[in-house]
């Protein structure tokens, strides 16, 4: 498990990352979301040790992370581009060798991975000859060679078409299945909701929400919706609930005192028909908007 504890980084007088704390559990995909300038990239660069840490720490295996640990991580930085004028296989082998992988094994593995992405016949091409989507595929191959202990990916899905997103996601799942923790940042909330086990929302350098997607949707004040036959204005008078919206027999309310919703449904049944009653779980985008507002 990768643990980020109270991580802080200042640039001059601005605090880009402010006491950020979250976990990236083994075998899970953790999505890292937040607007531009929220501090995602800075956090990831500190996790990877390419940017100094002002305060706090990164822990791996329950102890402070070392350079050797990071050497076993796969990392995909924010802006794409390996060496544009070098054959793709050569540079993949070079990068894998820098991480200690023997050249021959690196060549074999890289070729297999490239073939898996349908790039088997382009191994000798210069990177710049490839389409952007294909360059991104090469980039992910660079991150997973040699087989990483953890993956830290900055915007791995940006610029990919839906089919490429799926094959990239499949590849990442291969690693999480083997127990590899994966942290990736993204702007695309729908994608994060679909792929992630866990979510960390960053805003202005602070974690404003963190947890599994389910937990996040359950968190906050519970909301319920009641649709009855008659005007639902009476709900306002009950204790322990706050009405958010009423439209005829359709009412949306929040519960401040646990169990107060039971009073509402009993009262509704006494007053007439109840067409619908249920918990309303907000969409991820709503939560995001709420926590980053």
């Amino acid at each position: 498990m990768l643990e980020i504890r109270e991580l802080t980084r200042r640039f001059g007088t601005t605090t880009a990352v402010d006491r950020v704390t979250f976990d990236v559990p083994a075998g899970q995909m953790t999505g890292f979301v937040g607007g531009n300038g929220a501090g995602k990239t800075t956090t990831m660069r500190m996790v990877m040790g390419v940017l100094g840490i002002d305060a706090g720490e990164v822990r791996w295996d329950g102890r402070p992370i070392t350079r050797l640990d990071r050497r076993t991580f796969g990392y995909m930085p924010e802006e794409r581009g390996l060496y544009p004028k070098q054959p793709i296989l050569d540079q993949l082998v070079y990068l894998a060798q820098l991480k200690g992988m023997p050249g021959r094994a690196a060549r074999r593995e890289a070729t297999l991975l490239l073939e898996g992405f349908g790039l088997g016949d382009r191994t000798r091409d210069h990177l710049e000859k490839l389409s952007l989507g294909n360059q991104q595929r090469v980039q992910i191959v660079a991150a997973v060679l040699p087989r990483p202990a953890a993956l830290v990916l900055d915007e791995p899905f940006s610029g990919l078409d839906p089919a490429a997103v799926d094959s990239m996601a499949d590849l990442l799942r291969d690693y999480t299945r083997d127990g590899v923790p994966v942290l990736f940042s993204s702007h695309q909330l729908d994608l994060v909701e679909r792929l992630c086990d866990r979510l960390v929302v960053l805003s202005s350098g602070r974690v404003v929400a963190a947890g599994s997607v389910g937990e996040l949707r359950e968190s906050g004040t519970p909301r319920f919706r009641l649709v009855g036959g008659a005007d639902a204005g009476w709900v306002r008078d009950l204790r322990g609930v706050d009405v958010l919206d009423v439209e005829g027999g359709d009412v949306l309310f929040e519960v401040n005192e646990p169990g107060a919703e039971q009073g509402v449904i009993a009262e509704a049944a006494r007053r007439g028909t109840v067409h619908e009653f249920g918990r309303v779980r907000p969409a991820l985008s709503d939560i995001y908007r709420e926590v980053t507002a």
Binding site: G27, G62, R71, Q97, G100, A105, E109, P146
Partner: peptide, 29 residues
Amino acid sequence: IDTDNGARQRVDQHGDRSRTDSGTGEGRG
């Protein structure tokens, strides 16, 4: 997990991992 590069990494139930040799290569090659 056999990393296929000669180094074997152990990942136990808790995701704890310890290197059984010089790991992915510092000092090797």
